[in-house]
């Protein structure tokens, strides 16, 4: 007789768990649409030395200090997602 009682507890807990997880999935999707990662409408990865607007453009010397030709590669083979 203990088993049906246990099931009764597990059932609402499972449904709550599924509902919370579905809500979190929705939040993950909303987070994925955050404007700072939508590079088409709001570029977040500008690594140019130039200003984004032509109206305020000023000549900037070409940076040369970032080149690292002698460094050994450190790719570790791990992959993403």
């Amino acid at each position: 007789m203990a088993d049906p009682q246990r099931k009764d507890v597990r059932q609402p807990l499972l449904l709550i768990w599924v509902a919370v997880c579905v809500s979190l999935v929705a939040l993950v999707w909303v987070d994925n649409f955050r404007p700072d990662v939508n590079t088409a409408s709001q570029p977040a990865f500008i690594r140019s030395t130039a200003p984004a607007s032509a109206a305020t453009a000023t000549p900037t010397p070409t940076p040369t200090t970032l080149a690292t030709p002698g460094e050994a590669p450190t790719q570790d083979g791990t992959d993403d997602h």
Binding site: D31, N32, R34, V37, T39, A40, P43, A44, F45, I46, R47, S48, T49, A50, T62, P63, D80, H81
Partner: peptide, 19 residues
């Protein structure tokens, strides 16, 4: 002198790692 991502379709949380 500069590299600018115009459009990408990666998983955002992972693409942020590049930045």
């Amino acid at each position: 002198t500069g590299v600018r991502i115009v459009r990408q379709r990666e998983t955002p949380s992972f693409f942020r790692l590049l930045e």
